[in-house]
Design a protein around this nucleic acid. Sequence first.
DNA 1: GCGCCGACTGGACAAGCTGTCCAGCGCAAT
DNA 2: ATTGCGCTGGACAGCTTGTCCAGTCGGCGC
Lengths: 156, 156
Amino acid sequence: MGIDALDGRLITLLDQEPRVGVLEASRRLGVARGTVQARLDRLQATGVVRGFGPQVDPAALGYPVTAFATLEIRQGQGPDVRAHLATVPEVLELHTTTGEGDMLCRLVARSNADLQRVIDRVVGFAGIVRASTAIVMENPVPLRIIPLVEQAAQDG
Amino acid sequence: MGIDALDGRLITLLDQEPRVGVLEASRRLGVARGTVQARLDRLQATGVVRGFGPQVDPAALGYPVTAFATLEIRQGQGPDVRAHLATVPEVLELHTTTGEGDMLCRLVARSNADLQRVIDRVVGFAGIVRASTAIVMENPVPLRIIPLVEQAAQDG
DNA sequence: GCGCCGACTGGACAAGCTGTCCAGCGCAAT
DNA sequence: ATTGCGCTGGACAGCTTGTCCAGTCGGCGC
């Protein structure tokens, strides 16, 4: 259970140039095409690579503002709150957490003013006791996985 | 600057079945192949679709624990802290924010015990004054974009 | 040491897709 | 009415994919 150096190089290559096909990848990596196909199949079968969906930029869609909201939930209202938040398109992800606050969600909005509307909609729900919001100013490290993949490739 | 209904349907289709090629997509959407190619080119040129990189699951790589850390930074140490965090593979993303705390980062670890090692490495840096960590227990809404795409497609 | 097994190689094949043209049409704005 | 733009439907060569196959190599158990 893990990935080896070839898996790592394959994932990194696909990350940098998603357009390359299996044949081109086999040339770049210096292995037979069948090997690349087998590795890719295995990576997807084991769930390491979940898919190759389009990576959409919310900012380009007209939602340049990102924020994180920490929510405090009334006892027993968890399921209701989750269902509520799942219906809000501006909620991009939701986690339940330990520590201060019970949930953490990522929001986007059309502007700082629009963020108020989104937050009102998010917290305008009986089960939510308190919410504190942190607006994202910069994103020095965008969501990435390659460094972790390379570490995992070395370890295993 | 925006997307229309056809763009939305195309993105949704690609999200659900990334394997479909341009030709198959044109059949599914009921338009000419050239149209799909032109739309895809435009979506990528305008940055709405940034790419089709592999979606890697950290859990499948051996990092099943996710956490969010709020960091408080000493005045003027921001750039140094960013550079430091960028070198840690377990830091999957980093944001600078308003509100309590100056930065928010997403971490993964091999176990709860291993998370301690990661946190020590993250906060073991002179510029970081204080850190509070929230461990993710559940992820009721995984990172998603389709609902927002559909809303953007309706708006115009 | 022997034999088995899994993984990789290098190659083959038909089928299908991609990239790239083109002419024609309809709609919207000027 | 005229222009511009996007969509259609079709063509073409070139290449890739999916799927076989036999042969080789190294590790593992016996």
